[in-house]
Amino acid sequence: MKTKNKVKLFLVDDDAVFLKSLEIEFMLHGDFEIETYATGELCIAALDHLPDVIILDYFLDGVDKNAMDGITTLDIIKELQPELPVIMLSEQDKIDVAVSCMHHNAFDYVVKSETAFVRLQKNINTIYKLKKLEKELKWYIDRSSSFSY
């Protein structure tokens, strides 16, 4: 259940140390309700918890070699909840990997580095600014359509 004024964030990564450090960073620098998952399968099974944003690792095969990869997980998330923003995260600093993620409707692609957390924070801020603009635009359109000219 979403707590008032808190962003519900799913962090999905098979690297337990990185996952924990990312969770701690978000807890220290924002008002988040965080759920963490080591596999895409676990993340998908929990989509009924209604996350606002998902940060998803690209590979996801460190815990289980047969686990679903990040792109497959992203595709299933987008099939089930097309409007849910998913930010892909990986150690792969390759343009073709980033382009592939964007073709699969990721909101953004962030390389795991010393600046990754700052980029993730900026992405989440951008997502919320866009959602606010969409609400304002919808309100304006709804209001405008109620007037007769």
Rank of each mutant, 00 (worst) to 15 (best):
H103M: 06
C101T: 12
S113T: 09
Q121V: 14
D96C: 08
A116W: 04
I124Q: 03
C101M: 06
E83V: 06
K138E: 04
L74V: 08
L130S: 03
E91H: 11
K129Q: 09
R119K: 15
R119E: 15
E83P: 00
A98I: 10
K78V: 04
V86D: 01
K122H: 11
L137F: 13
L80I: 07
V86A: 13
K132W: 05
I77R: 11
V97T: 15
F117A: 06
A106I: 12
F107V: 09
S100F: 10
K131M: 09
Q121G: 12
H103C: 00
S144E: 09
F117P: 00
L80N: 04
I124L: 01
D93Y: 04
Y128M: 10
I95E: 05
L80C: 00
I124M: 01
Q92I: 12
M88E: 01
K135C: 00
E79V: 01
E114V: 13
L80V: 03
D108V: 04
L84S: 01
Q92G: 10
Q92R: 15
L120G: 05
K112L: 03
V99Y: 00
V97P: 06
N125M: 07
K78S: 03
K138G: 00
F117E: 02
S145P: 00
L133S: 11
V99G: 03
A106Q: 13
K122P: 00
R119W: 08
R143V: 03
H104I: 15
Y128N: 11
L120N: 01
I141A: 07
D108W: 12
D96R: 11
N105S: 12
P85N: 03
N105T: 06
V110T: 14
A98E: 03
D108P: 06
K78E: 01
S113G: 13
D142N: 08
M102I: 15
N123H: 14
Q92W: 13
K132M: 08
F107M: 02
V86H: 11
L84G: 03
K129M: 08
S113R: 12
L133R: 07
K78N: 10
I76G: 07
V99C: 02
E114G: 13
